[in-house]
Every structure is written in structure tokens, then in C-alpha cells.
């Protein structure tokens, strides 16, 4: 039907683009399997000729790595759970009820999505100090939770808006309350959007550096991104180990992404893209 030479050329260009995009991560992987002695060789090695797992073993066993891993896990999982549920409840109400101030509240949600993270870091710092939540993982967790709410509300409202009124009415006719409607009907239906929200929220907590750096000073309470930064100071030339640690940090998210890829794309489609 169409000129196949032209098509091939286009695929070649796109393929090259994809390759370039993939390359830095590939290089990280290669370095993480390369023994430290040969990591800094010139010309750089693009393949681990003497692959070793020692970087991973070393990273995993050093500098309280496991502790920091657990901290990150705790902070991200709990804040994701809290943030997602709170935002879903708000999105549900904003989408399905008409009440005074509804538009204004939604506008404030949207507006706070724009706020640069650094803008309120100082007031938040002072606030946390006041509430005795500085240097506390639970305090950090609360900041993450609050930070997730605007985008999640936006995403989920987009989905809830698409659910036909008839479903709502049918539930009410059957004697179900709004509670049943929310938990039993809406939330299961919203699964793809929900998965998307959960993933983005988890990523927000898991990858955060700035807030953790600002709110946590006690080395015993650090999270993984802070620890990774610290690694570089202590092992200046141990690039293999630094990237092994980084790969360990990235793996959970990639695993989630692979597992839920279809949902995530469908979720964005159902929620935000249409809304």
C-alpha cells in the first residue's frame, strides 16, 4: 500500500531513537556487573567481559543499605496507601455530588499541582518542626501523602466522571448506600486508573531526594536516595557498587511497571486523558 522503503527508513530512525533512549540504563547495568578495577577504563567498556555479582553483594551489605531500603519501603508504601485512598474519596465526592464550594475545592486541588516543590519547603519545614515531626520517617510520610493528593484526585475524578449515572442509580435502587457505591462498585471499576495512581504515587515517595534531605538529618533515619548520594561520597571511585545499589533501588518500580503495564496505559486513558 505504501512505499515500503520509506517505511523502513522511518522504523530505522525510530529504532535508533529508542536505542539512544535505552542506552544510559543499559550502561548503568553494564557498570553494575563490571568489577571495580575495570569500570573506569578508557575506552569505556560497553559489555561486562568479566561479569561479577560482587558489586551487588557489597552494596547490599554495606552502609546500612538494608535499613535504608526498609525505610524507603515503609515511607513509600504507607504514604501511597494513605494518599491514594484519601484522594479517591475526595475525587468520588467531587465527581458524584453537587455541593457548595465544589468547584472552588477542585480548583484549589488543580492549582496545588502547579506549586513547585521548593516553594513551600521552608514553611513545611517550620510546620514539621512545630509538630515535632522533623527527623521522623512518619513526618516525611505525611508530607509525601499530602503531596500525592492533588494529582491522584485529578486522575481519579477524570475516571469517576465517565461512569454513567445509571450504575449509580441502580446501586441506590438496590438499597445500597453511597458507601457501597464507592467501595464495592466504583473502586473495582476504577482499577486501571487506581493502578496508575498507585504507581506514580509510589514512585514519588520512593525516588524523592529533596524532601528527605530537608526533613531528615539523622543518618539512622535516611531513605534510599539519600543513602545513594552518600555512597558516592564514601566510595568515590566504586562506580560498580554505586550502580549496583542504584539498580537495586530501581528494580521494585520496574517490576511493578512490567506487571501492570497494560493497566497503567489503560488507566491514563480512562482517567486523565479523557478528563
Amino acid at each position: 500500500m505504501f512505499n515500503s522503503k520509506k517505511r523502513k527508513a522511518r522504523f530505522l530512525i525510530f529504532g535508533l531513537l529508542a536505542l539512544v533512549m535505552v542506552f544510559p540504563f543499559y550502561y548503568m547495568l553494564v557498570l553494575s556487573f563490571t568489577p571495580n578495577e575495570s569500570a573506569l577504563k578508557y575506552p569505556p567498556q560497553l559489555w561486562p567481559f568479566h561479569p561479577t555479582l560482587s558489586n551487588y553483594v557489597q552494596a547490599w551489605q554495606s552502609n546500612n543499605f538494608q535499613l535504608y531500603f526498609l525505610h524507603s519501603l515503609w515511607v513509600s508504601v504507607i504514604s501511597t496507601l494513605l494518599g491514594t485512598i484519601i484522594a479517591c474519596a475526595a475525587a468520588f465526592v467531587i465527581s458524584r455530588f453537587r455541593f457548595f464550594g465544589r468547584k472552588l475545592i477542585y480548583m484549589i486541588f488543580l492549582g496545588s499541582m502547579m506549586v513547585p516543590s521548593m516553594t513551600f519547603i521552608l514553611p513545611q519545614f517550620k510546620e514539621m518542626e512545630h509538630l515535632h515531626l522533623l527527623n521522623s520517617l512518619n513526618g516525611l510520610l505525611l508530607v509525601y501523602t499530602a503531596g500525592m493528593i492533588p494529582f491522584t484526585t485529578f486522575l481519579m475524578k477524570g475516571f469517576f466522571d465517565e461512569v454513567p449515572k445509571e450504575i449509580e442509580d441502580a446501586v441506590v435502587m438496590d438499597g445500597g448506600g453511597k458507601w457501597t457505591l464507592f467501595w464495592r462498585i466504583m473502586m473495582p471499576m476504577a482499577l486501571p486508573s487506581l493502578v496508575t495512581a498507585v504507581l506514580f504515587n509510589f514512585m514519588g515517595g520512593w525516588d524523592d531526594y529533596t524532601l528527605a534531605l530537608t526533613f531528615i538529618n539523622d543518618p539512622h533515619k535516611w531513605t534510599l536516595p539519600i543513602a545513594l548520594q552518600l555512597f558516592q561520597g564514601q566510595h568515590t571511585s566504586a562506580w560498580g557498587m554505586i550502580f549496583a545499589a542504584s539498580v537495586i533501588q530501581v528494580l521494585p518500580i520496574i517490576a511493578i511497571f512490567i506487571a501492570f503495564q497494560r493497566h497503567i496505559i489503560r488507566g491514563l486513558m480512562a482517567g486523565a486523558v479523557k478528563g
Binding site: A18, M21, V22, P24, F25, Y26, Y27, M28, L40, K41, Y42, P44, M203, W206, D207, D208, Y209, L224, P225, L228, Q229, Q232, W239, I242, F243, S246, Q249, V250, I253, I254, F257, I258, Q261
Partner: peptide, 29 residues
């Protein structure tokens, strides 16, 4: 390919910074 491409966005920015600093290194980057 999609999974690999997406991995760029899930890597913590602080690691992204480190990896690229290494790649930009004037000596052996």
C-alpha cells in the same frame, strides 16, 4: 523496548544525575 524506555522515568532523579555526570566526564566518560 517500551519497558526499557520507561525505566528512564522510574529511576530516581538523583541516580539519573549521577549516571549522566559519569557519562559526561571529560576524562573517561
Amino acid at each position: 523496548v517500551r519497558t526499557f524506555v520507561i525505566s528512564a522515568m522510574v529511576i530516581a532523579p538523583i541516580i539519573v544525575g549521577t549516571a549522566w555526570r559519569l557519562m559526561y566526564n571529560p576524562g573517561w566518560g
